[in-house]
Amino acid sequence: MSGQLIINGIVNASLIAPPAIAFSLLFGILRFPNFAIGAYVTVGAFIAYALNVGAGMPLWVAGLGAMAGTAVVVWLSDVLVFKPMRGHTPVTLLVVSIALALIIEHVIRLFYGADVRGFDLPLERPIKFAGMRITGEQIDIIIMTIVIGIAIHLLLQYTRIGKAMRATADNEVLAEVRGINTSYVIAFTWLVCGALFGLTGVFAGLDLVIEPLVGWYLTIPIFAAAILGGIGSPYGAMLGSLLVGLAEELTVLVLPSSYKIGVGFVIIAVLLLIRPHGLLGQPEIKK
């Protein structure tokens, strides 16, 4: 029984990890928690749905389309909403991001209503072993998340733009002074994160359901994972996702499963009390 829960937890973690990495990367630039991340995920799910079910494309093409489309939407949200307001207080920006999340969610409702949808996929039998079961789609999600994690690591560590991303997140003024065109780097960061949110939308459509609130339900676990790993640390976000993903599933042993969404909050609250900088994060040194 608990073996099954661990499998579910890993699938869950694979769902949370890409957006948690993206949230962490964005936090480095924005310096406030962007509550619209869930809405970005929902956008990805619905673009994939429109391309897959609406336009009849195969899912992998629809998925790539969702990544590209979401990247553009997410980047536009910076150009239209956040960029003109850079320099406002974190709370102002936080309220703005919640308002943006509401707008996106309800634009989707306007066109698609509140119905629960799913991709057009042939039904597959789950693979069974030792009394546990896992679907082919879940295996795909786990593999792709691992690939994404490695790709982001290579990007940040070994490419020129990746180093510029880290430098800009660390100290934007100094990066600019050293000749880095930071507005270009920031735009690139938004696009990369947008693609990750789009991909998560596809995952969510595969493993959960497609509805206007699907991203909202993921928002808190994503925050929890990123905070757990230390906000601004992409590697921490991966570790944090694993812990949150497992914790959410394992609470089923003690609490009804309908409380799953509350687990993220409890993790955040407890963690912030005992270790405000997260597991891998470094304390911000205030002058």
């Binding site: 180093k163 880290r166 100290n171 990066a175 050293r178 880095i180 470094q282």
Partner: peptide, 24 residues
């Protein structure tokens, strides 16, 4: 001009504080 272009003109500025990339 923006700072990044001035840097390309051969100017290197060392701020008093926050003058390194701490995470790098």
């Amino acid at each position: 001009k923006p700072a990044s272009e001035i840097a390309r003109c051969g100017v290197a500025y060392v701020p008093q504080e926050a003058n390194v990339f701490r995470q790098l």
